[in-house]
C-alpha cells in the first residue's frame, strides 16, 4: 500500500520546500499537492486530535473562496451554485451548473488558472497557503471517473497477463487517482520517469 504512494509523496514534498516563503509558490506546488493531500486522507486518524480546528480552518478557506468566485459569477453574468466541502486535508469548492465550459477551458486550463487565483485570494486573507481544490461543472469529477476506468482496464490486463503495464504520462493528480484505483484491485503500482513524462506502471500483485 505504502509502496504505491511513497514515491509520489516524496516528489510532492520537494516542490514547495524548494521555493519556501513565497506566496506565489502555492501555484508551483499545485500539481504536487493533490497527492500529498490524498495520501493524508488515507490515514485520517493521525490528524484527529487537531481535527476540528483543521476543519474550521478549511471551512473558512472555502468561505473566502466562495465569496471570491460568487462575485466573479455575478460580474461575468454566469449561473452557477457553489458547493463547499472539506476533503481529506483540504477545502474543496465546486461551481455547479450548466454553461460553465468557458470557466473550464481546453484541458481545464481556465479552471487551473481560477484555482490558482482562488488560492491566492485565500492566502491574501488568511496569510496561509491554501491547497484548496476547485472544480467547475464537474470537470475534475469526470476526469477522475475516466481515470478510474482506465486504471481498472490496465489492472485487468495485468491480472490476465501477469505482466506489468505502463500507462501514458500523467499529472501527479492523475497518477494519484490511478494508484488508488489500482491498489483497490489488490495490485501494486509505481511511477516511473521524470516530469512531465512521468508514468504509472501497474504491476501484478506480489
Amino acid at each position: 500500500m505504502n509502496e504505491t504512494t511513497e514515491p509520489e509523496a516524496l516528489s510532492a514534498e520537494t516542490v514547495p520546500a524548494a521555493a519556501e516563503g513565497n506566496a506565489e509558490t502555492a501555484a508551483a506546488g499545485v500539481d504536487a499537492h493533490p497527492e500529498t493531500a490524498a495520501a493524508g486522507a488515507e490515514t485520517p486518524g493521525e490528524a484527529a486530535p487537531a481535527g476540528s480546528d483543521r476543519v474550521k480552518r478549511l471551512e473558512a478557506e472555502g468561505d473566502i473562496a466562495a465569496d471570491y468566485l460568487e462575485e466573479l459569477l455575478d460580474i461575468a453574468d454566469l449561473d452557477g451554485d457553489l458547493d463547499m466541502d472539506v476533503e481529506g486535508d483540504r477545502a474543496a469548492v465546486s461551481i455547479v451548473g450548466d454553461g460553465l465550459d468557458v470557466l473550464v477551458g481546453a484541458d481545464g486550463e481556465v479552471l487551473e488558472a481560477l484555482q490558482e487565483l482562488t488560492r491566492l485570494a485565500v492566502f491574501t486573507q488568511t496569510g496561509q497557503r491554501s491547497r484548496l481544490m476547485l472544480d467547475i461543472g464537474g470537470y475534475r469529477q469526470d476526469l477522475r471517473k475516466n481515470l478510474v476506468a482506465l486504471a481498472r482496464e490496465a489492472g485487468e490486463e495485468v491480472q490476465e497477463t501477469g505482466e506489468a503495464v505502463k500507462l501514458s504520462p500523467m499529472t501527479p493528480f492523475e497518477r494519484k487517482v490511478v494508484h488508488d484505483a489500482v491498489a483497490e484491485m489488490g495490485l501494486t503500482s509505481e511511477s516511473d520517469g521524470l516530469e512531465p513524462t512521468r508514468c504509472v506502471v501497474v504491476h501484478p500483485a506480489r
Binding site: 501555484a27 468557458v102 477551458g105 488558472a113 490558482e116 487565483l117
Partner: peptide, 15 residues
C-alpha cells in the same frame, strides 16, 4: 513567480 499569476489572470480574461 515566473509570471504565473499574471498568466492565470490572462487565461481567465481571455476565456
Amino acid at each position: 513567480r515566473a509570471g504565473r499569476t499574471a498568466t492565470a489572470l490572462r487565461t481567465v480574461l481571455q476565456a
